[in-house]
Design a protein around this nucleic acid. Structure first.
Lengths: 152, 152
DNA sequence: CCTGAAATCCCCCTGTA
DNA sequence: TACAGGGGGATTTCAGG
């Protein structure tokens, strides 16, 4: 799929000012709203724009604890990866799953209401995941998305 | 801010099916569209709903490489954290910055067009960040958001 | 004050040149 | 790509609880 400079401008604006109407985007990117809309549609069909997702402030909802967990899996079962991922997906407190090349195989981002709640999740839902060989955890202080300027 | 069960239902639907119209959302959550809209507005003003972000497929845009970097900073300068974060924010290829409690201080998510490009970013923009004591890198294979069911 | 229905208004989306 | 129009949904208003 061909990406033009206008596409890049458009994407940059979409990322810099999320939730803007098509009309507003058109104005900022120097397009008419019809063109702008068709361009967005094309990016969607081309798979560049995967969709939209609502950004929730878990902290404001009373979920005070966020933890990043790194796993090494045991390599005896070739299906260990799939089994681990499937099980992790079923844990609702897991909000992100990443898989890697290298010594660390997986990373999970987990949220909990408070420390006691985290302990419970950790014991009953994390340590029971299949094929864990090693595991270390990092308490998150804050996440900053560098929305400032994106490489487009 | 008071969060009711109806709010939770609503948020769950918003997360499960992003980009839905207010009318559809209302139907699924068992509300009228006016009430639904007012509730969403209230959640926005209360800071629970931060907004809607476009999800971009960097891979489709030709950014093939994604890396997770973990840093330990030197603790000689109390302003090391701020300096590091400020510098990292200025690197446009850094798409996420997290800070932690513990031995690992920071995590950066970095994207690059290809391996050669990554090498260049790594040498010129990552290794030049201030106050790095230790650093390890993990190549990302894939990210899966567990949008399946969220803890609300 | 909060809810729901109805009215209004805006803006997405499409046809056309 | 620009323009213009129809249709539909977002937002407001208003009456009733």
């Amino acid at each position: 799929m061909q990406i033009t400079d206008a596409d890049r401008r458009l994407l940059r604006h979409m990322l810099a000012a999320p939730g803007l109407s098509v009309a507003d985007l058109a104005e900022r990117a120097g397009l008419t709203s019809a063109t702008c809309w068709r361009r967005i549609e094309r990016l969607r069909e081309g798979g560049v724009l995967r969709g939209e997702h609502a950004v929730i402030d878990w902290h404001a909802l009373g979920w005070e604890v966020e933890v990043s967990l790194r796993f090494t899996l045991d390599k005896t079962d070739p299906r260990a990866f799939d089994a681990f991922i499937a099980a992790a997906r079923n844990v609702s407190e897991v909000i992100e799953i990443q898989s890697f090349l290298g010594s660390t195989d997986m990373r999970l981002q987990v949220i909990a209401r408070d420390m006691a709640h985290y302990q419970e999740i950790y014991r009953n839902k994390i340590l029971t995941l299949p094929h864990i060989a090693e595991l270390d955890a990092l308490m998150l202080i804050s996440t900053i998305k560098s929305g400032a300027e994106l490489p487009l």
